[in-house]
Amino acid sequence: MTITKQKIGFQHVGSFLRPTDLKQARVDFEAGKIDQAALTAVEDKDIRELVSKEKAAGLDYVTDGEFRRAYWHLDFFWGFNGIEHNHLGGGYNFHKTESRDDSAIVSGKISFNPNHPFLKHFAFLKSLTDEIGGVLPKQTIPAPGQLYAELVRGENEAKTKEFYPNEADLIADIQKAYHDAIIALYNEGARTIQLDDCSWGFFLDKDYVARSTDQNKYDSLDTPQVLLDLNNGAIEDLPDDLTINTHVCRGNFRSDYIFSGGYDTVADYLFAQENVDTYFLEYDSDRAGGFEPLAKVSGDKRVVLGLVTTKSPELEDRQVIIDRIKEASQYLPLDRLWLSTQCGFASTEEGNELTDEQQWAKLKLVKSIIDEIW
């Protein structure tokens, strides 16, 4: 039987710069000046306006901009049973700065929470796309391997081992919690789900691991097999009409990055064996290496080249982007390639260092090149 997956279409990786009124509403909420209902009302208004802008920009798939989140990953983790919000006393060390110290820690056996807030978040987004028509909703969530990375980070590891002395049980529970979450999102109408994944970066950048052994335990792993198994196990036996994509990132915080290194060291795992439909790959700088590893992308899986950066306001040279797409097509046929920005514009609520107008100019450039080449 031939399964028809969703077309790639014109889509943004995920997050958008937070509007000023939303940032203020979050400050007021944390200070106790407004309640959750008032904050949600601001979020709803701004998401409605964003979706209209996304449609006007020609996007085929739209997101809620991750407007209800502080972080691209942690808010999702905190929604599981057995996971709590904690502070590690230090954040991730980016190239020039350090992130806030929020984290996620095990407080019991991990399982899917039927009242996970992301279900309502997606339902609202889908209600908007159903209302305006002509666009489809996309749900972004962090990859299973990303949760594992957080739970073995620094002081978190001891608490994880307290509840999970056998790591195989931890992996199994993460897989099941994710599988149940994905099915629940599917039941709300999600047909395109994107797994955002920075965890491969630990294997791309050995220098980072060498200087960060106090923050993570990836240096003790012989291969990336644990990530592959985690992610593939979570996405087994899903409905045939559900498209699972992944976005591989090297860190995106206030226009800064964590990791450097090409995909060569993980291509035999990530590209050859991860059972996703499409890869959204960061390729906006020399830190991402060359296109040669794309030859390892197996089957009929597709690659969206993140050649337009969200980390700086300068608009890329159109011909340079076109030339790089042609270069990539030496390793993967053009009909299996596509174009996007390298990441979101605000992986955390702080956002990258560009303006609202500049983020839309970036997307306009992406759309015009897609229209010309494909």
Rank of each mutant, 00 (worst) to 15 (best):
N86D: 13
A272N: 11
T341F: 00
K159M: 15
I110W: 00
Q175F: 02
G90Y: 14
S99Q: 09
P142C: 03
G289E: 08
N166A: 14
G299F: 11
P142D: 01
D64R: 01
I235N: 08
I141A: 05
K53D: 06
Y148H: 12
F94A: 09
A172M: 06
I369T: 10
T140M: 05
L230W: 07
G14Q: 02
A210T: 06
I321R: 04
L315S: 11
G108Y: 11
V248R: 02
I174Q: 02
A184L: 10
V152D: 11
E155I: 14
F77Y: 14
V27P: 05
V297A: 12
A272C: 07
L354E: 10
Y283V: 07
E162G: 12
S107Q: 12
S329F: 08
L136F: 13
F124S: 06
E162H: 14
F67T: 02
T97A: 11
L151W: 07
P144R: 05
D173L: 05
D44F: 13
R48C: 12
T63E: 06
G233T: 12
L270C: 08
D205F: 00
E327S: 14
G32Q: 04
D130E: 15
W200D: 01
V366H: 09
E314R: 12
G89A: 10
L17R: 01
Y331V: 04
H12V: 00
P333H: 01
I183K: 12
D169Y: 11
L17I: 07
G251P: 08
K367H: 13
P19I: 10
H87Q: 13
G65H: 01
F124N: 00
H121V: 13
T20H: 14
T355A: 07
K5P: 07
H116C: 05
E98C: 11
F345K: 02
F112Y: 12
I171W: 06
F76T: 15
Y178F: 03
I110V: 07
E292T: 11
A295E: 13
F280C: 04
S199H: 02
